[in-house]
Design a protein around this nucleic acid. Structure first.
Length: 439
RNA sequence: GCGGGGAUAGCCGAGCGGUAAGGCGACGGCCUGCUAAGCCGUUUCCCUAUGGGACCGGGGGUUCGAAUCCCCCUCCCCGCGCCA
């Protein structure tokens, strides 16, 4: 949620942000007009309450003496009736205003590239050495801006679906039968490899001072609504039948709600958490995309970085979280590029977002594996997470970033590390956890 | 699931029908070679702000007046039961 003070005092900031997002400004105007109305009613209500309080203070000594107060009672009742009427309107307007307010997108960072959609996303860093099938070369050179090392191969490698199914490391058919599409059985060494990824990731963040957390995998509506974008409810979240619970789509949500309604000491900031959890996503808007395999699925495991910090530190910490994710993919020797997400593609919550896109030699393209967002005080305001400052309590900034989502990284490893005999080289740093050099 | 106890400001904690004590911490000031101590003040939220309003886990009720009495709900603690 944006700061209502900005809506009142500097609405031009919001109009400009909406322009950069290529979104309309009706929502801003609506919010302002509802807020004006709300303040008018509040004034009326407060004046009447003041009058009532004054009357009661006058009655107290009379009532104590045991004298008759029926005339005064009558007057108080009349004022109360009026208060009731005003308050009813006030509550209605307030909830209407807040609904609109909550839907106003976060203020975009002025550094973010301005564009209507994802075509404006700007790749600005390139790491590692890519394996490129000759047919994909022009696409590769284009999307790596010629700034990335590569090795050309003359035969397209086997897709992860074919290879893993053939090798008995996944079973998609049975998963489809018992659960539906976009589910999977992971089998054998692939399960060990997945666990190795998670353990390595958690240890890495622990060494960097993160508090490792396994959060609840379900949240109630209030917490979910505080942590996420309202559109997530329709497209993303699974609701638990008959309970006020939603399966989490990412551990970002329980980590964001972890300090809800709290006032943190400034000296305790920044705080860093490493969340480990499964993620459940309906993928309702993704019909036809990545329908085969384990690249886009309803359930996957993820290690997430989350930070609470002082407002002046958030830009710096955004780079730190991104840096950790870079280090992870560097160490796994998976080639990738970094993309500065454009204003039109940010989503409502983020002010600035960097994605890491790994190179997938079989698909012949870069695909998202990490998303690092600075959401400023947008989440903190909804969740009422503040810190004590000399001049009052202020909202913290929150940031989140994937460290690793296991399924996409497994696919990247399979595509990048497969050998002619169909075995898959285990990244060196994971070998001691897997207990094998190849699976 | 049953019985008992509880939830008050950042934290601790009193008040138990007349409109939120006190302590700790934090911040500001005074004092002082410096520091500490001491003293004074500030320290929930909202509004069009020298003022006004709201707030004692949440919601409803009784009353001129509710933190206080009544009802419902949530969560926590203790005991019993059940259980991987």
């Amino acid at each position: 949620m944006i700061d209502i003070g900005i809506l009142r005092k500097n609405p031009e900031i919001l109009y400009e942000s909406q322009r950069r997002r290529f979104q309309g400004d009706e929502i801003i105007r609506k919010a302002i007009s509802l807020d004006d109305k709300w303040r008018e009613l509040l004034k009326k209500s407060n004046d009447l309450k003041s009058e009532k309080n004054r009357m009661i203070r006058e009655i107290a000594p009379i009532a104590k003496r045991g004298e008759d107060i029926s005339a005064q009672k009558k007057k108080v009742e009349m004022v109360e009736t009026q208060i009731g009427l005003i308050e009813k309107q006030l509550t209605e307007i307030e909830s209407e205003r807040d609904n609109v307010l909550r839907r106003i997108p976060n203020i975009v960072d002025l550094e973010a590239p301005v564009a209507r959609d994802e075509s404006g996303n700007t790749a600005f860093e390139f790491h590692g050495k890519a394996t490129v099938f000759s047919d994909d070369l022009s696409n590769f050179l284009d999307s790596s801006k010629g700034k990335m090392e590569y090795e050309l191969i003359e035969r397209r490698r086997e897709s992860h679906v074919d290879l893993l199914t053939r090798r008995g490391l996944i079973d998609l058919e049975t998963a489809a039968k018992v659960s539906g599409s976009r589910f999977y059985y992971l089998l054998g060494d692939l399960v060990i490899l997945e666990n190795a990824i998670e353990l390595y990731a958690l240890k890495m963040l622990r060494e960097k001072g993160f508090t490792v957390v396994e959060p609840p995998f379900m949240l109630n509506k209030e917490a979910t609504n505080g942590a996420t974008d309202f559109t997530a409810f329709e497209d993303t979240l699974y609701k638990v039948e008959g309970e006020d619970l939603y399966l989490i789509a990412t551990s970002e949500h329980p980590l964001a709600s972890y300090h809800s309604d709290q006032i943190l000491e400034a000296r305790s900031l920044p705080q860093f958490y490493a969340g480990r959890s499964p993620c459940f996503r309906r993928e309702a808007g993704a019909h036809g995309k990545d329908t085969k395999g384990i690249f886009r699925v309803h359930q996957f495991n993820k290690i997430e970085q989350f930070s609470y910090c002082l407002p002046e530190d958030s830009a710096k910490i955004h780079r730190i979280l991104l840096g950790n994710a870079k280090e992870f993919y560097d160490n796994l020797k998976i080639p990738y590029r970094i993309v500065d997400i454009s204003t039109g593609d940010l989503g409502n919550v983020a002010s600035r977002k960097f994605d890491i896109e790994a190179w997938y030699p079989v698909q012949g393209q870069f695909r998202e594996v990490v998303s690092a967002s600075n959401v400023l005080d947008y989440q903190a305001r909804r969740l009422k997470i503040r810190y004590r400052a000399n001049d009052g309590n202020k909202f913290v900034h929150t940031l989140n970033s994937t460290l690793v989502a296991t399924t996409r990284t497994l696919v990247a490893i399979v595509e990048n590390n497969q050998q002619p005999d169909g075995t898959i080289m285990v990244p060196e740093v994971l070998q001691k956890y897997v207990g094998k050099e190849a699976i």
